[in-house]
Design a protein around this nucleic acid. Structure first.
Lengths: 344, 344
DNA sequence: TTGTAGGCGTTATCAA
DNA sequence: TTGATAACGCCTACAA
């Protein structure tokens, strides 16, 4: 790999001349520039970004850590963030941190390989986040327990976890359902657990007894998990101990629906079902599934803006937080479709 | 940000002592080590990965460039690649290069910010790939035109484009269909275009006339695109000028299916449909959709292994290619499900 | 066991 | 208009 030093040597000029020429500095004469550019091309010179970063003390990189890039909307969220960052000449790079692999993400965090980090993965611990966030590398996390965030350079974006799960349970109850099963998703899914808590609160508020025999663990968030767990729900439907099923995610609901239909169970006549997240697929199946939209896109946009504020350094954390939570965007909305019947 | 130099100064030792201590070198005494570590923690010292890379002349990063991380299987493919790379202490980072944003990916390529690159995005041009691939940074691309790959450090992974689209069209014809509509996806989708070519070849081989009025452009690959374009297909079904529809992707098929069912068109009795890719959703809808599996996972695994070969530098490109194509893995397979009827 | 010095590739400052 | 040199933060011979 040739460096500017090599170019300089081969042309009998100095490195600084080469550097300036390659960066099109006005201080260098046209002929020298041309000569240098030619040599660079001929020698197959490629600039070394690492050296650049070291010199600049800045990477221009915003790191997005996710646990699952396949999630619907992720690409859209990306676009939102990217277009916002682009305005400030920042590049977005993604690292997957899953239950079985967090080392890469942790290396990037602990070696300061970004100017800022958006951490959407629950597999990166609060400890790491607190340990490494700094003025030079603020970290934005989502939906963590506020008490555990002690580092002032960590900004926690509160999600609508207070109401999450309650809204849609209320809705089912108001539509006359009294025997609402709940299907939990992946054990490690924060969202799924919060929804379960909301479900419990809603039951309590309406003075409905919790029936533990109609709480199910799917062990994952995918179609297959919903499909498989539905086997255990079918009996409960046919003997009338379940009149509605609240699946923790739309994907689970899609899988469950499929199994129900296979067994001749009519949705919503025999059983109402709801999902969560308003994934695109939820309106494509028959019947389309009633679900909850969390308005992720809007959250993402706001996160990007927050990040910029942080980076430009013209805001204190308090101000940033205030702006972040201003406006009524962190709410969820029930999307009514055909998978719920009115039993009143 | 404190550096080892600061630590050294504050403790009155030399930088190399600090460096070695922090890296747990056996040459440093226990008490000095302890003292230094303590100081590092106290000063909130964070290692600078950029400086490290520069020194090592190596980033340990493999860059994966994708056009759409939301695609099903992507996360799984990631796991496959990651676990393979992990064995060699390489980290995988992802950058999205879409039709509206390639700058980030291009910067990473042109500034040599990775030890190797896997480029799955068609938005990165052959020119860039040819310009920047080198011994220090080989690039693996997928499904490009071999003639246009001139740089010996670019490895093109041929996909099964020869047969793609032909297999499933043959299948429909053998099942007695004669009026097969084709729904193209996103204009820029390489896969979609190849499948269309395969469809044409198959028709020709069976001496069936091409009916241009039953070729449709969905303008995208998502559920919605399939749902919308289906409007135009319905008339053709009811007046019996279409007896089967070949959707370029499963997602299109899912959307189309939905629209057909809404309009009382029975699948497969009134019209057979097939998709492509064997996405998980294709077997979750009713009826489940007959499709083609491209065995992406296996391809990914092989790509990862190829990459390692390349990086370890103990193989020539010819050897690598030979090994890459050995074994019969780059084939596609028809997955028969309920969306096709036998009309013979 | 610890310190000195040089180098990784680039840019920036200052001098020529 | 160009050149010499220091600096960015780290590691590694080699010397002490």
């Amino acid at each position: 790999m040739p460096t500017i030093k090599d170019i300089a040597k081969s042309l009998g000029v100095s490195v600084s001349t080469v550097s300036m020429a390659l960066n099109d500095s006005p201080e260098i004469g046209q002929k020298t520039k041309a000569k240098i550019r030619e040599a660079a091309k001929a020698m197959n010179y490629i600039k070394n970004g690492t050296a650049l970063d070291l010199q600049r003390k800045k990477t221009n990189i915003v790191l997005l850590i996710t646990d699952n890039p396949t999630r619907p909307y992720f690409t859209d969220s990306l676009q939102v963030i990217q277009s916002e960052l682009l305005k400030h000449n920042m590049d977005l790079v993604i690292i997957a941190a899953t239950n079985k692999h967090t080392a890469t993400a942790e290396r990037f965090i602990s070696e300061n390989r970004a100017d800022a980090i958006i951490c959407m993965s629950k597999f990166i611990t609060d400890e790491i986040v607190n340990d490494y966030a700094s003025r030079n590398m603020p970290i934005i996390v989502m939906g963590r327990t506020p008490d555990l965030i002690t580092n002032p350079f960590v900004v926690n974006v509160a999600l609508d976890y207070e109401r999450v799960g309650e809204d849609i349970t209320d809705y089912l109850i108001q539509k006359g359902h009294r025997k609402i099963a709940f299907v939990r998703g992946s054990k490690t899914s924060v969202g799924s657990n919060y929804r379960y808590q909301g479900y419990l609160r809603s039951l309590k508020r309406f003075h409905l007894d919790l029936n533990k025999t109609i709480i199910f663990e799917a062990g994952g968030n995918g179609y297959d998990h919903g499909y498989d767990i539905a086997d255990k729900i079918i009996g409960k439907i046919t003997d009338a101990s379940v009149d509605a099923v609240f699946f923790a995610t739309d994907d689970l609901a899609v899988g469950g629906l499929r199994k129900f239909l296979e067994h001749g169970i009519r949705v919503p006549e025999d059983v109402s079902i709801v999902g969560y997240n308003n994934y695109p697929i939820s309106k494509m199946v028959m019947p389309p599934i009633t679900t909850v939209d969390l308005h992720q896109q809007k959250i993402m946009k706001r996160i990007a803006v927050t990040l910029i504020d942080l980076l430009e350094g013209n805001k204190t954390k308090a101000e940033v937080l205030k702006k972040l939570h201003k406006g009524n965007i962190l709410y969820s909305e029930i999307i009514e479709r055909g998978s719920v019947i009115n039993r009143n």
